[in-house]
Amino acid sequence: MKPLKHLTLILAASAFAALLIAAMFALPPPTVNLAASVAADMDRSGTAHPVTAVLLNFRGYDTLLEIGVLLLALLVVLAVSPREQHAGSAAAEPVLQMLARIAVPLMLLAAGYLLWAGAYRPGGAFQAGAVLGAAAVLLFLAGLLPGWNAPTLRLRWGLAGGFLVFLAVAAALLGQGALLRYPPEAAGALILLIEAALTVSLGLILAGLFLFLS
């Protein structure tokens, strides 16, 4: 019975893929040009890089909800992981430890650069936060960072800080009638503030997803 079921499902999946591709080829050319409307509003956005402008200005509420989702995922991971025997990873080889000692400062530098570069060229809070998280995971695997048992008060503030700063900015600007519509003259500073807080929180959350699990 099982091979028959598999075969039917694989045939159905192939037919589905063929239909999807046929639909893509049959699509008419797009009537809305989003790239042009982004380019037209770039000088009011506070940054010089279109992707950063979309992420933190034009569709800032997506990013606000996204950091909220990440925080929620971390809370659930904390809730389902057992809380005891977190001894941290065993002492690793000296070569790995030395490599981690050399690599982590460079990774911190790279994260800072990515955060700063986000205003002008590819980069930004997400990539910088990912590099920060990877640095923490590397330190943990090398045995240089103890495992996190339960988050301390300071760590909790760090984890929630990005979401709270973003929410505070959104609430402060709500008086103007629209969610996250920055005044053009202050947009650059506000975006930098939000991005810095987001980077720290994202790094801690991504590291926490690994460190609380293992």
């Binding site: 279109p50 979309v54 992420l55 699990l213």
Partner: peptide, 19 residues
């Protein structure tokens, strides 16, 4: 840039969902 920004958000949410 609009779908590109959405996909960046999506990748980060995907790793949270995986974890």
């Amino acid at each position: 840039p609009v779908p590109q920004a959405m996909v960046i958000t999506g990748i980060v949410v995907a790793v949270a969902a995986t974890a």
